[in-house]
Design a protein around this nucleic acid. Structure first.
Lengths: 116, 116
DNA sequence: CGACTACATTGATGACTGTCAATGTCAGGG
DNA sequence: CCCTGACATTGACAGTCATCAATGTAGTCG
């Protein structure tokens, strides 16, 4: 910054007229980035895909570990991130843990792009 | 994997009936994740926001460096990532480089979530 | 109670990422 | 022709992340 100590209004009319305010607040941007961070991994996208495609609407971890060719702790880790991002819902019944899509969460995430 | 050497069909009826195929291909997931990876940074979201908000539809780097409180090389780096993700378009005129939103790119990114 | 099963947590490690200082490139002006 | 300004590229470094092996926890069944 401050590369123009003098001659600011001399023959410059094309460039460098910033909007003043960043248009998207730093805190707001951080918050939105968290959701996209959760989506920024191929295996997490596949997890969402499988859960979404399941007819019952929910899947247990053992349904998810095998098709991804990942270790069980890794899948558990990814699922935790998706839950914390508000995309998945976790419900434990007996020995199994069932994961389901949070209704409207994906649409809401898509909406974040429209309100940039 | 392979934690069930024997007794596979013994008294299990509730869980572990995977969809067979991952529903979202590994390569396809990788490709989609690239877009979300580009969106998974607060400063990049703010860059997109500024470019989008600009009345002229395009902004030069000097318009983007100041409001973000980042060094010029860092902003250049982020812009490159956004261009490679297909979200921004770069056009060099004279000494300045102008960045503009790729038309429909944000909508297309939002659409990726619908087709999981 | 004790073994087994489904899942979560921890710790470690290699890979990747965001940032900046320094340098390179290229166009315009004296 | 050199100098300056706008932007890109490189190299280095700290922080984050994805992954796995090992271990912990909590239901279930005998």
């Amino acid at each position: 910054m401050k590369l123009l100590p003098v001659l600011d209004q001399a023959t410059d009319e094309a460039c460098c007229t910033p909007s003043g305010v960043p248009a998207l607040g730093a805190e707001e941007a951080k918050q939105k980035a968290l959701v996209f961070k959760a989506l920024a991994d191929p295996n997490r996208l596949r997890l969402l895909s499988i859960v979404k495609a399941d007819a019952s609407g929910e899947s247990c971890v053992c349904d998810l570990t095998e098709p991804l060719d990942l270790g069980q702790p890794t899948v558990s880790h990814h699922l935790k991130i998706l839950v914390e991002a508000g995309l998945l819902h976790r419900e434990k019944r007996g020995t199994w843990a069932y994961y389901s899509l949070v209704p409207g969460a994906l649409d809401e995430a898509a909406g974040l792009l429209a309100t940039l």
